[in-house]
Nucleic acid binder design. Sequence first.
DNA 1: TGAATAGTGTCTATTAGACAATATGCG
DNA 2: CGCATATTGTCTAATAGACACTATTCA
Lengths: 296, 296
Amino acid sequence: MIDENGFNEEEFLKNYDAKKYERPSVTNDIIIFTTEDKEESNPRKMPRKGMQVLLIKRKEHPYINQWATPGGFVRMNESLVEGLKRELKEETGVDNVYTEQLYAFGDTDRDPRTRVISIANMALIPKNSINPMAGDDAKEVAWFWVNKKLIKNDWEKENIEKIYELELKSIDDSVKIIYEIKETISKDIFRRRKVKYSLLEESTDLLAFDHYKVIDCGIDKLREKIEESPIAFNLLPRLFVVKELQYVYESIMGKEILNFRRKIGNMIVETDEKIEGKPYRPAQVFKFNENWEREF
Amino acid sequence: MIDENGFNEEEFLKNYDAKKYERPSVTNDIIIFTTEDKEESNPRKMPRKGMQVLLIKRKEHPYINQWATPGGFVRMNESLVEGLKRELKEETGVDNVYTEQLYAFGDTDRDPRTRVISIANMALIPKNSINPMAGDDAKEVAWFWVNKKLIKNDWEKENIEKIYELELKSIDDSVKIIYEIKETISKDIFRRRKVKYSLLEESTDLLAFDHYKVIDCGIDKLREKIEESPIAFNLLPRLFVVKELQYVYESIMGKEILNFRRKIGNMIVETDEKIEGKPYRPAQVFKFNENWEREF
DNA sequence: TGAATAGTGTCTATTAGACAATATGCG
DNA sequence: CGCATATTGTCTAATAGACACTATTCA
């Protein structure tokens, strides 16, 4: 097959100059989610859970000393997924993590160094399976409690406007970052639009780059997916108690769930195996049902 | 704020060498969907509809003379969305099109020229709003009927295996491209995996690059979104008849819908305006209800 | 008038939500 | 025992599916 220059494909490729055009850099960004027990004064009661994300404190320009989601440049000889798994391994020391691609962020001015396109991903891991410091050197790494909640829902205007608050709080309570997210739903031809993200004054710090958008996007996706596929199990150890699983769901969905055991159905099965060091009452131990079926 | 080299941010940026690392190329790929009337012998009956995608025939290596989804390289001075809109304008001559980002494809060997990462997008346009040849020169452009259907659903194995057929057929019936898609759902920790795409023998041609994956991904997304937001209106002119809208939904969802008018509820409103040249019976003309509300 | 679209009524089966009642295990 | 978790029962309201019946329009 010959082109208009009389080249066959082999010749064409030999003459192709990949350097001809300037190219953007591409990074993988990862929002590493986990769930963690919240305070519970009653020792006989199963503590409720909250969501956490892993952030790193940047040690370089730009955005030096600000918190950011982990990630890094995609190398030429690795696929997006391979690069993602490599980053995860470096950052958390863990293989075999559930990940899901979220969105490609590509504004021209997101990074002052150069044109950077970031592929945002989320990862779900059980809290105690990892040691975030593991892979890395002196980098400061920390878990942040994360919460996104609707604080205003305005039906008055022609466009429905919803205001959310995205709160990130370091576990030692020293850092607090709060964004306000204005979302309008313009009904001309029904689109949801994030119109405005703004940092609230209570914040003691702020996130690097446009990482507030990345995290916001990740929370939305996580909430959406948790209802349609059993990804919650990626946030728990292999063995658990029903209430524990329920609290994982509740922490993500941000509301209490009734009739939980019925809803989860035969997605979980009892097992005789014992969880060590979990003295909650009936302590009926469950695991994910490998033979679970549902209609597709 | 000073880094370990004693630089402030300004100095750091001045010394930053963007050329230091090799970078991948990034393209926007667009699956342009529309719906079109199918054959209907009875002139008094509203014809049912089918889905079509716009493909271009490549005039250059690699994959010369093969059909591909339109798209192009993202320029350094434009955002992903700006690049996408530019491509759409060039390809179809239309502004103001509904688009949605789908997925970033990033395998290392997708393009023999060089490392290319493609951001796949879908676009929805009413068929008669555009003239695909418009923007462009000698490029061959054509609408293809597109259909994806489940042809086998195997519950026997430990992993559920589903087999789909993705069929693309040029409107003049001269080109027919059929892929078989094997999808397994491994239930260890519930993931859907496209394991295998293979071209069927009946095909008279094949798609360039991994564009079968891109189109497959687009159809899935379209089917998913049509049920949760009123994007179907982007496939019709402003004024339409209920049955017409119903047939758009049916063509995308691939099945008949009962009680359609009740399901669509007050998402549409009657109007006195006339559609020119649409002699279907009661011809009750509707449009999208700008004041439509639903719970979020 | 007849055929095709539009709108309404209604029956049934299924499902979600709410909550009461009961069982179980452990300190 | 008392409390917290686990399981079952049941009532109600809401919803989806199916289909029949009526209205409207236009060649």
